[in-house]
């Protein structure tokens, strides 16, 4: 059993508040990330005593593992998934390297407009009808979840490492599902 020394966990309040709200702590959150990284065992023990599972993803972020979300959260998650996948397609269509562009390029309102315009059928399912909707419903939420960083008065966004979870999910959609869809 790991000894938990609460005096060492100076960022506990912030970290706990963020993680329970679904936020992903990545390297951008300097202080919290450093402390989690250094005191990982203690935090993991503490949170597991509280009934949470602290997950450290080697690609540079921490989050709480949950296997069930609320209906509303599920909808938000699907919206984020759709946004990321359309963004990948957009970059690939432009002949760019999507894995790099996702993390290195900014997402601005113009790009949002373009995504919604080109994928109207898809975004209609989420009742997202314009770039502004996309920004408000998806990007701002991603910022709150620690998956994106807002810059320039929230007009430009940069995606962060935690979106790897969506890339994993993308690769998980397996052949069976694809095949059964083709049969339809």
């Amino acid at each position: 059993m790991t000894d938990i020394d609460l005096t060492q966990l100076t960022q506990l309040h912030y970290i706990n508040k963020k993680l329970v709200s679904g936020y992903h702590i990545s390297e951008q959150d300097n202080l919290a990330w450093q402390e989690l990284d250094q005191q990982q065992e203690q935090y993991a023990a503490l949170f597991s005593a509280l009934g949470h599972t602290l997950v450290h993803d080697a690609r540079g972020f921490f989050h709480f593992a949950t296997d069930e979300g609320t209906a509303n959260m599920g909808k938000i998650s699907r919206a984020i998934a759709l946004f990321i996948y359309t963004l990948i397609e957009h970059y690939a269509n432009q002949g760019q390297d999507p894995m790099r562009a996702l993390f290195d390029k900014d997402v601005d309102l113009e790009l949002c407009q373009e995504l919604v315009l080109h994928n109207k059928v898809l975004y209609d399912q989420l009742e997202i009808f314009s770039g502004t909707d996309l920004r408000k419903d998806v990007l701002m939420r991603m910022v709150r979840l620690g998956m994106a960083k807002a810059k320039d008065k929230e007009s430009v966004f940069r995606l962060l490492a935690p979106i790897h979870r969506y890339l994993d999910a993308l690769l998980e959609v397996n052949e069976d599902a694809l095949e059964s869809a083709e049969e339809l």
Binding site: S21, G22, D67, A177
Partner: peptide, 18 residues
């Protein structure tokens, strides 16, 4: 969207956690 992604989407923060 729902039928494809429901099984695979990542989850975060449930209501009780709040």
């Amino acid at each position: 969207l729902d039928s494809v992604m429901s099984a695979h989407q990542p989850f975060f923060a449930s209501e009780p956690m709040h």
